[in-house]
Design a protein around this nucleic acid. Structure first.
Lengths: 165, 165
DNA sequence: TTAGCTGCAAAGCCTTTGCAATTTA
DNA sequence: TAAATTGCAAAGGCTTTGCAGCTAA
């Protein structure tokens, strides 16, 4: 799905989170572990509601409250494991910021699909621009809007729109 | 404040809006005209609350309700006169998308200041990336985060943070 | 005259928070 | 055991909406 490669990570997200919590004398509870595992089970973008739903479908009957998911997602953001990337339908969208290289997105306005890409040249240009303004760059967010190849093509079978949401 | 130049516009924002409204059999009311004039009185970024406040301070006693401002801002967005650029403190931020050239922002995480810039090279790269993915680009949003020159310098007088908000 | 518009208040929604009970280290 | 955490429900805060009265064309 993506031509990006995972970055080498020494430790798992859960361990990374445990380290962060330790520095603040906070605890890695069962709930927090479940949430982190669920979030890092795949590399897709997500919003809080999706995680709450996925957790509610666990077969071991262990539930986690919505409040706790909100609180944990915030903590993960502070810990540098997650990054808020956008807002969709009034909700905040997040993506992994640990174990995954920096990248940007092409966003299809028809299907809503996100295509990731990374451009070293882009980085260079941003460095240059920042330097020209005496600005110390720490990061960036780039979203390119338009139509994906699939969305442009006339749909042959009911493919694209329907299967995707 | 900005080294960008205004784009040549044939007609005023209000007229442009009137044209748009005409295509949808909608009306340019006094309220809508006031709102557009207030929004395009300067080129600063704004949120709905700021416009509501500015309108409430008119000396001619003409008031416009918050609902109407929300509704009009949405219409202006659809009309292509405004663009939603970010979210700050839970509010949507807008900027002009008519009579002003495409540009991006350097955002100071300390002062919150927005520095505009435009890079033709950036456009080229985005065109290239989009082409590689068979993506038809229609626009983009780029925010570069970091520290502005002023924020890096030790504040001599109480300047920067305090005077700015 | 007749759609469309405005204001107001109420509702919607995502997100945050107070608090008592529970749990981790 | 003491401090941190959870769940629940309620509160927050921005934005949207239903509706009756008003108004542009």
């Amino acid at each position: 799905m993506s031509d990006l490669q995972a970055v080498e990570v020494a430790i798992s997200p859960v361990e990374k989170f445990r380290e962060y919590l330790a520095t603040k004398a906070q605890r890695l509870t069962t709930e927090r572990r479940f949430i982190v595992e669920e979030i890092f089970a795949d590399h897709d973008h997500f919003d809080v509601d999706q995680i709450v739903m996925r957790l509610s479908q666990r077969d071991d009957g262990k539930r986690v409250s919505r409040s706790t998911v909100y609180r944990t997602v915030s903590a993960l953001e502070e810990a540098g494991l997650l990054r808020k990337i956008a807002r969709a339908d009034g909700r905040d969208l997040y993506e992994h910021d640990y174990g995954y290289p920096q990248h940007d997105h092409l966003i299809c306005r028809r299907t809503g699909k996100l295509i990731e890409f990374h451009s070293p040249e882009l980085d260079e240009i941003l460095q240059k621009v920042a330097a020209e303004h005496g600005f110390r760059m720490e990061g960036h967010r780039l979203e390119v809007y338009g139509l994906s190849a699939e969305a442009c093509r006339p749909a042959r079978r009911s493919y694209g729109k329907l299967d995707r949401i």
